[in-house]
């Protein structure tokens, strides 16, 4: 990725507070078209707050967010219309709605019938299990299936940037692998991805570039491949690096 082009998504000096607690301080992140960028950090580092603030779900105290050089709206529903969508932490599928209805909720801002049908086919191709369970209530799905649904639902708005908040949370390693494989495919099909993860190894293996967030501050950024070999990162986030990848 060359730095000469304008980033597709650009977060500039973002600050977010909850009362007296400063959750995100002066964070700047760039995501270029076609990239997968990950933000890694421990629990409580401010990763989810960062995502919520970008989506307009939490009030941005100061700083700006730009999409394609234009200032991003402040309210969630406008942000979605402008081209971002989020698969939130903990999946947050609509349990009493069917899989199909959940996906239709993802397409809520759209009115292009045939386009929605195309994206529905795309999601079902990526996650065939969702098609099998099309009429099943989302609350009855397994954790992995719910995560697939959350990702599929976010794709249904045909976002320019797909935001993923902890897609590996609470899932078995084999399911995580499966989901990350599909994320790579989604990216190769042309969707730019911004991912926040506690599972640093998986995130760094998937992404092109990464940022490290610690207690609300960015402490490091670089190519994911370099960060994977960085001794500090290895000690702090990759469990010493003795495990074979």
């Amino acid at each position: 990725m060359t730095d000469s082009q304008t980033p597709l998504l650009s977060v500039r000096n973002l600050c977010v507070s909850y009362g007296a607690i400063k959750a995100v301080q002066n964070v700047s992140i760039d995501v270029f078209a076609g990239e997968i960028v990950s933000v890694i950090g421990a629990n409580g580092a401010g990763k989810s707050t960062l995502m919520s603030a970008v989506m307009g779900d939490v009030r941005r105290e100061s700083g700006d967010v730009f999409l394609d050089g234009k200032v991003l709206a402040k309210k969630s529903f406008q942000v979605v219309t402008q081209g971002l969508s989020l698969a939130p932490e903990g999946r947050k599928v609509f349990a009493p709605l069917t899989v199909f209805e959940n996906l239709m909720m993802g397409a809520f801002p759209r009115n292009d019938r045939s386009g929605i049908d195309d994206d529905l086919k795309r999601v079902f191709t990526l996650f065939p299990r969702l098609e099998e369970r099309r009429e099943q209530y989302a609350g009855t799905l397994s954790g992995g299936e719910q995560q697939m649904l959350a990702i599929g639902r976010a794709l249904m708005s045909r976002p320019r940037v797909l935001l993923l908040d902890e897609p590996s949370l609470g899932l078995a390693p084999i399911i995580i692998k499966e989901i990350f494989r599909e994320l790579k495919l989604i990216n190769e099909q042309g969707t730019t991805i911004l991912l926040v993860e506690q599972n640093a190894r998986q995130a760094l293996l998937l992404s092109h570039r990464a940022y490290v967030l610690q207690t609300g501050h960015l402490i490091k950024e670089g190519l994911s491949a370099d960060l994977l070999r960085d001794p500090d990162i290895e000690a702090a986030y990759l469990g010493g690096g003795h495990r074979k990848l």
Binding site: M55, D57, K75, S76, F77, V80, T81, S85, L86, P88, K92, F94, M105, G106, F108, P109, R153, S157
Partner: peptide
Amino acid sequence: VAGLMGVNV
């Protein structure tokens, strides 16, 4: 979450 789907709450 409905708001995050693009629904004007």
